[in-house]
Computed example of a mutant assay.
Amino acid sequence: MSALIDFYQQQPQNEGLLTPFQGLGFVTAMAAAPNIIDPAEWIAFFWGGEEQAPFESAQDFEAFANAVVDSFNEIRDKLFSHEWQWPAACQLDEENIVTSECQALCEGLLQGWQLARDDWETLMPESSEDNALLGGVLLSLSLLFDPETAIAELASQGIQGLEQFEEIYNAMPQMLCGLTLKGQQLLAEQA
């Protein structure tokens, strides 16, 4: 379990913050980004970018910031060592295709990608072969974030069944690690 999820479990529910798994997804996107963006530049996204953080004390904010940085470091290490996996709560679900935690994690990943988007698009421009990897990861995250819309769209194209979601879900750890490593490789080649 990540330091960030531990923080959320130990604190009273803070309505002003991203949910625990949205936050974990956001941190994962930042950890996967090709260029490290200082957490001081993006931590305010957890509370909608407002100037005032929604914490009762400086100690609470410091504990939160430490949990974010610890989770960032842990996730980045796992992405680079090809060991990143879905958190235990992020599972396939027969009734809803994926758990709400999985949907929230995907939502946070997509939100975080927006912040690092320019870096990704510079390294993997639309005309490049590598753009297919980036597009595949983003499409897969979008499908897992909103599976009901995805199923309706697939059905309109004559595709039935949920096997695709299981394949996408199972492939995501490898895809996300691969994207992270490819981003670093391309960054090194440009240096």
Rank of each mutant, 00 (worst) to 15 (best):
L144I: 08
R117I: 00
E148L: 10
L92R: 12
C106Q: 10
I151V: 15
S127W: 05
L105E: 03
S128G: 07
L138Y: 08
E94L: 10
E101V: 00
E94G: 12
G135D: 14
I97R: 03
L144R: 00
E126I: 12
A89V: 08
S81R: 12
C102Q: 04
N131A: 11
Q114Y: 03
E126G: 11
A116F: 04
C102R: 01
L154W: 09
G108M: 09
W113F: 15
I151C: 11
I151G: 07
A89I: 03
Q164L: 15
S156W: 01
W113C: 05
T99C: 05
F165I: 09
E126H: 11
D146K: 01
S140R: 00
G158Q: 10
D77G: 13
C90H: 05
Q91I: 02
I159M: 15
L133G: 00
E148G: 02
E107D: 12
L79S: 08
W120G: 01
E148P: 00
A88N: 12
E107S: 13
Q85W: 00
E107R: 14
L92H: 05
L134F: 09
W86H: 13
A155N: 15
V98N: 00
P147E: 05
G108A: 11
S127T: 14
L162W: 01
L92M: 14
S128A: 13
G158W: 07
S128W: 07
L141C: 05
F145S: 11
A152F: 09
L123M: 07
L143K: 04
A150R: 04
G135N: 15
Q103R: 15
I97T: 14
L138K: 10
W120E: 02
E163L: 13
V98F: 02
T122A: 14
A150F: 04
Q114R: 12
E121C: 07
E129I: 08
Q164I: 15
C90E: 03
L143E: 02
E129L: 12
L92S: 01
L109R: 01
A152V: 13
D118N: 12
F80S: 09
L110H: 06
V98R: 00
I159D: 08
M124Q: 04
I151D: 02
L79W: 09
P125I: 07
S127V: 13
N96M: 12
L143T: 03
C102G: 08
V137Y: 01
A104V: 01
L162A: 06
Q103G: 09
Q103V: 04
A89R: 09
M124E: 02
F165C: 08
C90K: 01
E94R: 11
L133K: 04
L79P: 02
F145D: 08
L79T: 05
Q114A: 12
L143F: 08
G161P: 07
G158K: 10
V98L: 05
G108Y: 04
S100M: 10
D119G: 09
E107Q: 14
A150I: 03
S128N: 09
D130L: 04
D77P: 00
Q111W: 01
T122H: 10
A104M: 09
N131V: 02
L144E: 02
L79N: 06
E83P: 00
N131L: 02
P87F: 11
E166S: 15
Q111R: 13
A89K: 08
T99Q: 05
N96W: 08
A132V: 06
W84S: 02
V98C: 01
L162V: 05
